[in-house]
Amino acid sequence: MNSASGVQADPDCVASFQELKLGKKVKFIIFKLSDDNKSIIVERKAETATYDEFLKHLPKNDCRWAVYDFDYKTPEGDRNKIVFYTWLPDAAPIKSKEWYTVNKDALFRSLDGIGAEIQDTNYDGVSYSTVLKSVARG
């Protein structure tokens, strides 16, 4: 899928997402723009990770997209949703925030099965309790 600026998601992005969604072989994936800003690539993926371990991989000074297989409990039982993150930290360069905002759809539209979407600029906004409130109501 192309974005307005011509950026495309690398085929490995979708393949990795399928491992997470269907195979349950991956707990999270972090995506980034390639160094030449022409494609979206997988930066990191993990087969197992706690939510706090996942958050440690979101950089303090640059933007990323990510998906996390979010597990939570309800009175009806255990649940999970695949959550898509657009991470735009306050300390990131303005140009990076612009690129990640403009090109999000090139990745987002290629990932079928997202259960919730979070966009934030600080770690409080992506804390487990904050994300839990979002996924539990949606």
Rank of each mutant, 00 (worst) to 15 (best):
S5G: 14
V7F: 13
V7S: 10
A9T: 07
D12K: 04
D12M: 09
C13S: 10
C13G: 05
C13F: 01
A15R: 09
A15Y: 06
Q18A: 15
E19V: 13
L20H: 00
L22K: 14
L22N: 14
G23T: 14
G23K: 14
G23P: 15
K24V: 10
K24R: 15
V26A: 02
K27W: 05
I30A: 01
F31H: 02
L33Y: 00
D35I: 01
D35G: 14
D35N: 06
D36F: 12
K38M: 01
K38F: 02
S39P: 06
S39V: 07
I40D: 09
I40P: 08
I40L: 14
I41R: 02
V42M: 06
E43L: 01
R44E: 03
R44M: 10
R44V: 09
K45C: 11
A46L: 12
A49H: 11
T50P: 01
T50R: 01
D52W: 00
F54D: 01
F54V: 00
L55V: 05
K56P: 07
L58W: 05
L58T: 11
L58E: 03
K60L: 07
K60S: 02
C63Q: 08
R64A: 11
V67S: 07
F70H: 06
Y72W: 13
T74W: 04
P75M: 01
P75H: 03
P75Y: 04
R79D: 03
R79K: 08
R79Q: 06
N80P: 05
V83A: 04
T86M: 12
T86I: 10
L88H: 04
L88C: 13
P89E: 07
A92G: 04
A92H: 00
P93C: 04
P93A: 05
K95M: 04
K97H: 05
E98Q: 14
Y100W: 13
Y100R: 10
T101K: 11
T101R: 12
V102I: 14
V102T: 11
A106G: 14
R109E: 13
R109K: 12
G113Y: 01
G113K: 02
G115T: 09
A116W: 01
I118E: 03
D120I: 08
N122T: 07
Y123M: 03
D124C: 12
D124Q: 10
V126I: 12
S127W: 04
S127H: 09
Y128H: 13
L132C: 13
V135F: 06
V135P: 03
A136I: 06
G138P: 00
